[in-house]
Design a binder for these strands. Structure first.
Length: 426
RNA sequence: GUGGGCGUAGCUCAGGUGGUUAGAGCGCCAGGUUGUGGCCCUGGAGGUCGGGGGUUCAAGUCCCCUCGCUCACCCCA
């Protein structure tokens, strides 16, 4: 990990951003491929939307009062004066895309996206991090909530993770939440002196946020608070019950957390969150989501229910490191070409072998055979394919296995088959 | 936005109370084999000691400022 050593004159990645290079990037490829396989086999199609959006997409969607929009969003004026923003999350852009194109409902989409938030970086938190996620629009059926949670859970399990907790809660809807919020505010006012400094004077701004305050004072003061799930209306109550029974039927262990109040204004009804128990750093939330039945309307479209989740790639990989799972290694090269004459054989043979479907790389330049073989060994290839003047004259190559086995001369036309055989019989 | 810790080769780190040309291991390159890797041996390249200012005969070492990295709070993936 390089520190401030780099001279000021050479550029470095901006604060809070990071490069993902080979071979770690191979793990990312496998991560995304695994996710794509799972969601596409559940009916979700890729939605690739711009990194830039009109700032209003998030201001109206996520809500001005949220920290993410209020103080962390990368927002700037474009050359023509319109306000643009780097997407801080994945849901609002997908809903915007729905409103713009109106695909037939129900519409199920998945995404892979960078997300930008101007925060002080720390372990598991970046100014540019990456998320995969899904969104399903146009259905209020509680069984869809179960499906969405199952997809997230199934994906984490597939990576090999086991040490995490799934929390769920219901945020109610526009019918039952206001009454509950009023009830909660009354309770909090009654216990005002017991709250922490920050929340004492901000009860009315958003009473529900007091619930997930981590300070012991607030924790204690809200111990006997009324629960929202006890005050759900006749639509939200049964909906939540159906979600719970669905999860139970699938054997998914979900813990009701009355304090689970997610930070975006658009959430309604079902909300959920996955927290890793293996990550030692403070940022242990590896994924979360929920229903946002009012979001499309808030963005100026017709009422359209929706539900989805986002999973943080960096944090999940951190959890995988901690649990020692998902160590995706890239497949080794089948061969490494060494040309000791003039490079013509390596040039032609490498292309020929690649077109035949083999994984092949080569050395360049005039270096000693020893140096070439060192490079071949370092590459991890199964075999070195050497062409010297003898081989070039006789139309053969020297095929040298690098993981045990005898070197032998092979006619040029049989190199592909020989390499394939070597790969299949280790 | 607030607070703590840390900045010496590509990487991981040594460098008592300031004292001559700043070191090691790993990695890289080359040689030990006219065309044979991994092990071993030898040699080499690579550092404005994050940057600037100050104290001093003398600063990697002491003081100040600054930048960067990192961890935590807040919030969140």
């Amino acid at each position: 990990m390089s520190t401030g050593r780099t001279p000021a004159s050479t550029p470095r990645a901006p604060r809070g951003t990071h490069d993902v290079l080979w071979p770690e990037s191979a793990r990312w490829e496998a991560f995304v491929a695994t996710f794509a396989r799972i969601v596409e086999s559940s009916g979700y199609g890729l939605a690739a939307t711009p990194v830039l959006e009109h700032a209003s997409v998030f201001r109206r969607g996520i809500g001005e009062s949220s920290d993410v929009v209020g103080k962390e969003m990368y927002e700037f004026e474009d050359r023509d004066g319109t306000m643009l923003a780097l997407r801080p999350e994945g849901t609002a852009p997908v809903v915007r895309a729905y409103l713009q194109h109106r695909p037939v409902l129900p519409w199920k989409a998945w995404y892979l996206t960078p997300a930008f938030r101007h925060e002080r970086p720390q372990a598991g938190r970046y100014r540019q991090h990456h998320q995969v996620g899904i969104e399903a629009l146009g259905e209020t059926d509680a069984d869809l909530d179960v499906e969405v949670i199952w997809v997230a859970e199934h994906f984490l399990r597939t990576l090999g993770l086991a040490d995490y907790v799934l929390s769920i809660n219901s945020m109610g809807d526009g019918r039952c939440r206001p009454a509950y919020v009023a009830l909660l505010a009354r309770y909090l006012h009654d216990h005002e002196d017991e709250l922490c400094e920050d929340h004492r004077h901000r009860i009315d701004a958003n009473p529900m946020r007091v619930l997930d305050c981590k300070r012991p004072e607030c924790r204690a003061a809200t111990e006997g608070v009324p629960y929202l799930i006890d005050h759900l209306c006749e639509d939200c109550g049964p909906h939540f019950e159906r979600v719970r029974s669905g999860l139970r039927a699938l054997g998914i262990d979900a813990r009701i957390d009355h304090r689970l109040v997610r930070g975006f204004d658009y959430y309604t009804r079902t909300t959920f969150e996955f927290a890793s128990g293996a990550i030692e750093a403070a940022q242990n939330g590896i994924g979360g989501g929920g229903r946002y039945d009012g979001l499309a309307e808030a963005m100026g479209g017709p009422p359209t229910p929706g539900i989805g989740f986002g999973i943080g790639i960096e944090r999940v990989l951190l959890a995988c490191d901690a649990e020692g799972c998902f160590e995706a290694a890239p497949p080794p090269l089948d061969g490494w070409l060494i040309d000791l004459v003039d490079g013509t054989s390596a040039r032609d043979l490498s292309i020929e072998l690649r077109e035949a479907g083999l994984r092949v790389d080569r050395g360049f330049g005039t270096r000693s055979l020893k140096a070439h073989l060192r490079a071949a060994d370092r590459s991890g290839a199964y075999a070195a394919v050497i062409v010297g003047s003898d081989e070039q004259a006789s139309g053969t190559v020297a095929l040298r296995p690098l993981r045990g086995g005898e070197q032998r001369q092979v006619p040029r036309g049989e190199v592909a088959a020989a390499l394939r055989a070597l790969r299949e019989t280790p």
